[in-house]
């Protein structure tokens, strides 16, 4: 009885070891297929999009405002992710979801949204378009 149990156990371990290694190779193959398709990960893509915006904000700034579709339509996962991605890219600059800042980043795919934001700003301001729905508002300029 004991030798049967031992035989089954060793067979089980043998299969588990083979299975574990084959599953490891299969996992790596899946990742490699994505890699060979040349897809850049979305964090790196977002960082590339933000290069010019980052340069446009003076180095001494500590906090900037941030507005996005999220403020119009309520919470959604994509807007949240883009907010955190922007925060990650611009750190240590602190993003606040508020218009009460000299510099405000607007991230929206809707042309109406930028108008809604600028309508709420009473100071003189300028808007710079960085493409792909990213704008930078600077208060104090004409």
């Amino acid at each position: 009885m004991s030798s049967i149990r031992s035989f089954v156990l060793r067979g089980l371990i043998f299969l588990a070891v083979i299975y574990s290694m084959v599953a490891g190779l299969y996992y790596s193959w899946g990742v490699y297929k994505n890699y060979s398709s040349g897809r850049l990960d979305y964090v790196s893509q977002w960082e590339s999009r933000m290069v010019d915006l980052k340069k446009a904000i003076p180095a001494g700034e500590k906090r900037v405002g941030y507005a996005s579709d999220w403020d119009l339509t309520g919470f959604d996962k994509d807007s949240y992710i883009e907010f955190i991605l922007t925060q990650y890219t611009l750190a240590p600059l602190f993003l606040e979801r508020s218009l009460n800042h000299e510099w405000i980043i607007v991230n929206s795919t809707s042309s109406e949204f930028l108008g809604r934001v600028t309508n709420q700003i009473t100071d003189p301001f300028t808007v710079r378009d960085f493409g792909s729905g990213i704008y930078l508002i600077h208060k104090g300029d004409q």
Binding site: S20, G24, S28, V31, S44
Partner: peptide, 20 residues
């Protein structure tokens, strides 16, 4: 040793694809 190599391949292929 083979298992270590397979695991290292899995680790590095993923971090190359998702460096962040």
């Amino acid at each position: 040793v083979l298992a270590i190599i397979i695991s290292l391949i899995g680790f590095f292929t993923t971090v190359i694809l998702y460096p962040h």
